[in-house]
Amino acid sequence: MIRALQIEPVKCTGCLQCEMACSYEKEGVFNPAKSRIKVFNFHEEGRMVPYTCTQCAEAWCLHACPVDAIRLDAETGAKIVVDVLCVGCKVCTIACPFGTINYNASAGVVVKCDLCDGDPECAKACPTEAITYVDADWTGLERMRDWADKTANEQPQA
């Protein structure tokens, strides 16, 4: 069963443990600026919203990449950047309509969530279960998909 990150903003306190866990796992430092998951602060609404790649079926980044540097992990369903192949052209960063693949200037490659080989650190670090790693059917991905449809460059067939 493919699993996915389920994010429930109402539970998020904005502690950024997820950002630190992510950057620590991927970059070896506590550095939210390099985290693949970001918590956005909606101060006026009093809401914190963690957000990262949903590993969407459209895989915009993967399709836009000119050098096949983004691959599908068959086991987790994650779209993974192969650093040695990425030339740093950043086309994927403008192609992804969710803004969840970003250029890391110091490394010269793009970075995105890869689900940590099926054991995501952000979910483990979250103290309030605002981020959990669950069966994909449960994630409310439907809502995400609805929106993805709106963005899609293909009209849904009647």
Partner: peptide
């Protein structure tokens, strides 16, 4: 009270967010 919120790194989250 709208919600509680945390400071950086805090797993207690005692902060009050009101409207």
């Amino acid at each position: 009270l709208v919600t509680n919120q945390a400071c950086f790194g805090c797993t207690i989250a005692c902060g009050r967010i009101s409207k």
